[in-house]
Design a protein around this nucleic acid. Structure first.
Lengths: 218, 218
DNA sequence: TAGATTGTTAATCGATTAACAATC
DNA sequence: TAGATTGTTAATCGATTAACAATC
């Protein structure tokens, strides 16, 4: 039951715990030990216990963890017990895919509108959500408090648009643009999904793997 | 010019260096010091030099780094000097978005086909690429050597499909399915893009930010 | 040559793992 | 009660930062 700042590495692992516990729950498991979870997830039991204890003592000596309780507790930690108003900036391929992503809409993330700078798209709908003109963004945010914005526009306009979002009171940006936004940390949180970075890491690893294969062929 | 295994954290940072150097190059900068890059990127100059020296001594004392040389060197490290045959598994929203993603097709990643388990989609095309029936995957791979597969199907079928990919000689999987694949590391490399995990981290941070705001309002 | 900046070694910091007393 | 397993402290490991000699 500590309260120091939780390390980023720990936070990154929480959704993975959440997934594995969800799977166990779906299987009807009622309890799980850190040792059992360790085997399934391929990380040490020690790390699991350390990680969880950043947030509280959810287990019980001699018993382990109640799967449902732990699942729900982690859900709360990850804000899965709340609803969010979401707008999607950019009605291109990626913006549309995110808007339509069903798992996304199911779980409390409520898309209210998309925005695009292409005037031809304004007035259309995507998966039933209205597409508005990008110039209306600031005005829209005044009337429609929004928790999360998904940025799926090219990097050229991303930094500028992000400022409008922050001024409009958006508190969280899910950034798919290939650029680092550099916004005031006390006003807004950002999580980057740099797909091209990710693909380059994959390409690095692929080359590395092939290098190993070659050296074994001697 | 060492050759120990490069830490994962370093590899994750390489694409970011690559982006910043690309920007500098576009601006016409010919040289850059680690101190200058440090200021721009918000990380220490020491870390930059340490990171780069995992791969080689690309700089010159008293001068710094030649932007173009360093950009190209990192490009090689990240496999950006090669072409890749790519297939996309799942012709849903995400699969289509990835297939159409222009930045992706521009840079040596050549989509050859999509696969979908929905027979209604087989025979159609997405952005000019043929959509084939998922049952043809194994056969296709025999005749069409493929470097990279992009997995954009629901987690239910992902593990099974991944096995077919590995058997078919695919060496790299870009995994968008919300599941950990657990494949033989000497046969295939995997990079995960767990979007729902990413969104949960954003939700965690949002809650954290709001908690700070509240405590300041006292 | 003098100044600048790297490459690399050494020091520090933080994260992971191990160990074990507490306790269900 | 005896066995199991947590929560937590201590030990280890690895990554980041600092310092500086090498050198362009």
């Amino acid at each position: 039951m500590k309260d120091k700042k939780v390390p980023a590495a720990v936070i990154q692992r929480m959704p993975r715990y959440y997934r594995y516990l969800g799977d166990l729950l779906a299987k009807g498991a009622s309890r799980v030990s850190s040792a059992e979870l360790s085997r399934r997830m391929g990380i040490t039991a020690s790390q699991i216990r350390q990680d969880l204890n950043h947030f509280g003592g959810f287990g019980q000596q001699g018993y382990g963890y109640n799967v449902e309780v732990l699942y729900n507790e982690i859900g709360k930690i990850l804000g899965q017990d709340q609803d969010y108003n979401v707008i999607v900036i950019g009605a291109g391929n990626l913006g549309q895919a995110v808007s339509k992503y069903t798992n996304f809409n199911k779980r409390g993330y409520k898309v209210t509108a998309l925005f695009d700078s292409n005037p031809a798209l304004a007035g259309t709908t995507v998966a039933g959500y209205p597409v508005l003109d990008a110039t209306e963004l600031g005005e829209y945010l005044k009337e429609n408090p929004t928790d999360i914005a998904v940025l799926t526009i090219p990097k050229a306009g991303a930094v500028e648009t992000a400022k409008v979002l922050v001024e409009g009171g958006v508190k969280a940006i899910w950034n798919f643009a290939s650029v680092d936004l550099d916004l005031p940390q006390d006003k807004v949180v950002v999580v980057n999904v740099h797909l091209s970075d990710s693909l380059r890491v994959l390409s690095y690893k692929l080359r590395e793997l092939r290098g190993q294969e070659d050296s074994e062929e001697v």
